[in-house]
Each structure stands twice: as C-alpha cells, then as structure tokens.
Amino acid sequence: MRALKLILGLAAALGAHLVGTWLVPDLPRVLDLFLVVVVLNALDASSLSGLSVGLGVGLLQDGLSGRLYGLHGFADTIVGYAVARAGQRLDLTSPAAVLVTVALATLLQEATLVVLAYLFTDPEPPEPLWVLVQAVANGVAGALLVSLGGRIRNLREVSRRHRASKIRL
C-alpha cells in the first residue's frame, strides 16, 4: 500500500511537473514536486526507505533536467535520509511541521546542488531570493498535501463509522 502510494505520488508529481513546465517554463524554479514527494515519503519511513526513495526520485528528476546525471540523485539521497532520521526523532505530522521540514529540505537540497556544481560543472549559484521562494512554495505544497491527506482520511473514517453505525434490520 505504501509503495503504491509512493508510485502514485511520483506519477502525479511527474505529470504535474511536465504539464506545469509546459505551461510555465520557470515552474521548476519555484516548485519542486519531486522533492516534496521525497520528503513526504521520508517523514514516517525508515532511513533506508528515505535514502532509496530519494535516490530513485532524484535520478528520475536528473533524467528530465539535461544537466549532469546524478546531481539530484545525490542531493535527494541526502535529503531523504536526513528527513527520515529527523522523522524518527521528532513529531512531524502536523501541517506546520511539514511546511518547515519541506522548506528546510529544499534549502539542504539547493546547498548540496551548489556544492556539486562547484565541483563538477561551471558553477552557477542560484539566486537566494528564488531559493527562498522555492523553499516556501515547496513547504506550502507539502503542508497542503498533508492537510488534504488528513482530511481524506478523516472523511473515510467518518464514512466507515457511519456505515458501521447503521442498524441493519
């Protein structure tokens, strides 16, 4: 079930990324849905799961980016592992906590990409303002998705109880 959710989430992120980029070419600058998927998965997952999902999603994103293959794979591996470890020690289930976590994960990812760019490619430091914008946007997207997921779970629970409470004659 968890794997299915991950795959669906990834497919949705990929679809939204492709459509969004077609509509707004600068969308990846503002919103990184792949990273949001990595972080949301890692919040209540093991370190191994966080690491693995980060690696897979990052490499998938690299296939779309046209830059060196493995940049996002490297960065998202670190992010997935770090968030999973944090999730094992802290309560990160509330939307506010998710917003902060995703925002910090975005900053960690950008910092890692900058270091890799200096090592392997012509360094092109991102503009700090856009990094902050992306961090906030990712955080908001993550918080919204968690809230939405919570509401859906609540509705399903209510519906289940409603069905269970009906007296069948």
């Binding site: 493995g70 940049l71 490297f74 890799l116």
Partner: peptide, 8 residues
C-alpha cells in the same frame, strides 16, 4: 554517485 558525476 560522485564517481558517476566525475565520470561524466
């Protein structure tokens, strides 16, 4: 992954 990047 670092090796992969360096190789490219």
């Amino acid at each position: 992954q670092l090796l992969l990047l360096a190789a490219q």
